[in-house]
């Protein structure tokens, strides 16, 4: 079953076009990696999907409904959620309050505060701390937990590992295995190809706003990927 189907998507930043004629598909419960160099348009693409960028053309179908003209609020309500690049925590809210923002959507399901605290025990310990007093990895856990409590059908994770210590990245990717078990589909946006393809079922590579490669994650050939990533 296809959960997300994007066809012929064009996204604009003012007069500049950032995404060209893009097709992309994510199945129910599937883990998809979206890799690409800096400036390839990955973040723009994610922000367009969740409705934060309105200037776009093309079709986006999510869970059977057309959402290309829907507001970010309605898209979230439908269960398409995002862990934004740079974590984007609410700085004047405590860890607990940040997580509770995920409850505002009232999408019930497996993920609750308790389950998130089980997944990331350190957050339970630091629930009253302000985000700026956390390490980068802990902040990322808050951002992931906050999105999980929305109980998304599909979770877009934008540059989760950026700027984190390798050990921390290990821990966070271990959590993704558990998240996937609940049937949540995932899109992992990464610059780190190895990391992303190890966790994913399928892989897309984005180059200058276009899909340059689509393949099963296990069957990636290095020379193909190098060409798709850097351009020839």
């Amino acid at each position: 079953m296809t959960l997300l189907e994007v066809s012929g998507l064009n996204v604009f930043h003012g007069d500049l076009q950032a995404i060209f004629d893009l097709d992309l598909r994510v199945g129910e419960g599937e883990v998809v990696a979206l890799v690409g160099a800096n400036g390839a348009g990955k973040t723009t693409m994610m922000r367009a999907l969740v409705g934060l960028i309105a200037s776009k053309q093309g079709r986006i179908r999510f869970d059977g409904a057309e959402i290309s003209a829907a507001s970010a609020e309605d898209i979230a309500r439908a269960g398409l959620c995002m862990v934004p690049e740079g974590r984007m925590l609410f700085d004047s809210l405590t860890v607990l309050e940040n997580l509770m923002m995920g409850q505002v959507l009232r999408r019930r399901g497996y993920w609750t505060l308790e389950r998130v605290f089980e997944l990331f025990p350190i957050l339970a310990e630091r629930r009253s701390a302000m985000p700026r007093h956390l390490s980068g990895g802990q902040q990322q856990m808050v951002a992931i937990g906050r999105a999980l409590i929305c109980n998304p059908r599909l979770l877009l994770c934008d540059e989760i590992s950026l700027g984190l210590a390798p050990l921390m990245v290990e821990q966070i990717y271990a959590a993704f295995a558990q998240i996937g078990k609940q049937g949540t589909a995932l899109v992992l946006v990464e610059q780190d190809v190895k990391r992303a393809s190890a966790a994913a079922d399928r892989l897309y590579c984005l180059l200058k706003g276009r899909i340059s490669l689509e393949t099963a994650a296990g069957a990636v050939r290095v020379e193909d990927l190098t060409r798709a990533y850097f351009g020839a």
């Binding site: 969740v50 409705g51 934060l52 507001s71 970010a72 609020e73 979230a76 309500r77 959620c81 995002m82 934004p84 984007m88 609410f90 700085d91 004047s92 809210l93 309050e97 509770m100 923002m101 995920g102 505002v104 959507l105 906050r146 999105a147 929305c150």
Partner: peptide
């Protein structure tokens, strides 16, 4: 909870939209 939503909106007015606000 409404106060929490107000503070979150003051912090990041675009990101709160991802939570239906």
């Amino acid at each position: 909870s409404f106060g929490r939503i107000i503070r979150a909106t003051a912090d990041r007015r675009d990101i709160v939209r991802l939570f239906g606000v």
